[in-house]
Design a protein around this nucleic acid. Structure first.
Lengths: 338, 338
DNA sequence: ATTAAAAATACAATCGATTGTATTTTTAAA
DNA sequence: TTTAAAAATACAATCGATTGTATTTTTAAT
């Protein structure tokens, strides 16, 4: 039982051929004759040889590995983005490392530091809720390696962002509620430190303004959009008495609020119409089913990774911030059918 | 802008101290004086030094990295297992690589091959549906590195398995339906090539036998337990006319069947009581809510990774197959309340 | 058969960190 | 002050693969 992996030197010795030739043969270099290649490949298979990527990467300073960093993999949207990334990465011969920040800045920093140590060729990231400064990302950028942001926009210079048009999606969602006759619409928003939630809030406000509805600051709830936040906000809504519409920046909080309404015999959509964001699987199953915004997660993953590969290979250096916007879609279900 | 990362040699040159001393200082070796350590650490920070793990791992043949290989990260159960793994790994100073086989053997083989190339220190795997031979895993074992199986049992020699007692869980689920008065219980099973589904089927059969209920082969449906399979099976059930209970090896198929029943005005649980497996988030939201088996996913992840670390470090070699069984729990909801 | 060009292969340095051994410096006991 | 022991540091090989350069072998034209 050969406890230690075979190396090119083992092949080299076994055949009396220099290791440089072995290396070239294994990489199918034209500098090695067909006959020799045949011998080497045969012996390699015989010894169960498998390239040591550590050595190879150390020498070439290419790891053929990219990383995705995101809050949590269990969210449907992110799982789909990963699926898209893995699809293109697989075709391009890249390995993908998946990392969860759990929306915690310290963890995100630690992750980036590890990725630097491991010299990954590129990073795609949806930044954590707590990320407001970008030093850790700049450290990676300094190595002249590309970062692509997705989902949550980030204004780091010379980087590409792949997102949906959050302003427009929010505008459409709000307009939809207004069209259904809602006059007093609450908005569940996330932290205003985060560009994403600023954009969504702006879309909500713009739609109200367009329809000459007065903006009421008390109708805008800022939170982490967790289940608990949803319940807390739902209570406040009922206290306000006159609310007839709710547009939430995610499905989690929307659904949690809907459950609370149900428990208090407040009818959705008759009393309060609800629109969420993300199209989580649960949104189609809950009763009434939830009207929500679907993001083309698979496409986002594919586009983000393709843009990353372009930068890694062609050295298409971006000299300014780029925003690539993909179309989202309002999925109208029962929660907003007045 | 220093495009290239600083190395220990840069620090060495800058201070006129040998690189071996620099290396030892950075690893806090007692062989370096405090004074020198101070100088080196200061300069390291100044130059933005970060260890090149590739070089380090190549030399030490330890990557401080473990891998989890599983069908898909988007499944709630697996996402929780990963959370458990990451928690212990983080504490132990290990990095975690997450890989999806998508229940495809070819992908799984490719993944293992990549993990061998990348010399990860250990692997935890829930094998794909298609995995019936283990050559690819044996190749990894030959390197004298540990594998821990979780979720889906696997009888590779000298490996540890971390699972729930699938036989018992199935027995309990079936017994529960029988106690509620069900006489004609259908079982949705997965491929019988897979030990996991054999065990679950055995538990179902044992419960029937215990209650002197005749086993009817027509009541056992083998499939991939997808949504489509659920609908297909639900149609067959209605054709059988007399079915009053359904025990499914996963929630996906159970829920899909329930939806079909609903569309045909067959009542759950009054006409047919349903029990699923996995406690997917949707199972709590669907109406009626689904009785199902909850696995301690977080615990499974923690235990599996801890056992892996033990083997990596203490060299606790297992000389036979070990099975660690954790307790699962039947969560009784409305779908089985007759 | 001679020879220049082309093809195939060998030599040797390198990537960055680690580590056993050797050497120098410091400490402290005689 | 000498000297042995201990502490600190330097030297040099190594992990496995890659790659520019040098050398040898083959091919083909004269």
């Amino acid at each position: 039982m050969n406890k230690n992996k075979a190396t090119i030197h083992d092949i080299s010795k076994a055949l009396g051929i220099d290791s440089s030739t072995v290396s070239r043969a294994l990489n199918d270099s034209p500098r090695v004759s067909k006959k020799t290649k045949g011998k080497i490949l045969k012996k390699a298979k015989e010894l169960g040889y498998q390239r040591n990527s550590l050595a190879s990467s150390l020498r070439t300073s290419k790891t053929q590995t990219i990383a995705v960093v995101l809050p949590r993999i269990s969210r449907h949207f992110f799982a789909r983005v990963i699926a898209g990334i893995e699809e293109t990465a697989h075709k391009a011969g890249y390995n993908v490392i998946i990392c969860q920040s759990l929306d915690n800045l310290e963890r995100e920093k630690k992750i980036i530091s590890t990725l630097i140590s491991n010299r990954v060729d590129g990073i795609m990231i949806s930044i954590s809720m707590e990320t407001t400064n970008y030093e850790h990302l700049e450290a990676y950028k300094k190595l002249d390696k590309p970062i692509v942001f997705f989902d949550r926009p980030c204004e780091l210079p010379n980087c590409i962002n792949v997102n949906i048009d959050n302003f427009q999606a929010s505008f459409d969602a709000t307009q939809h509620l207004i069209s259904r006759g809602c006059k007093h619409i609450v908005h569940f928003s996330g932290s205003q430190k985060i560009e994403l939630y600023r954009q969504r809030k702006a879309g909500y406000i713009a739609a109200l303004e367009k329809n000459n509805i007065k903006i009421n600051d008390h109708y805008i709830f800022e939170s982490n959009l967790s289940e608990e936040d949803g319940i807390r906000a739902a209570k406040k809504i009922l206290r306000l008495k006159n609310i007839d519409g709710l547009y939430s920046s995610n499905d989690t909080a929307a659904i949690s609020a809907m459950k609370y309404f149900k428990s208090k015999r407040v009818r959705v959509p008759e009393d309060i119409a609800v629109v969420g964001f993300n199209n989580d699987p649960i949104s189609a199953v809950i009763e009434p089913s939830l009207t929500t915004i679907n993001q083309p997660a698979l496409e986002i993953g594919k586009m983000a990774s393709n843009l990353l590969f372009e930068q890694i290979n062609n050295k298409t250096k971006t000299t300014k911030i780029q925003f690539r916007l993909l179309n989202s879609e309002l999925i109208i279900r029962h929660s907003s059918k007045k």
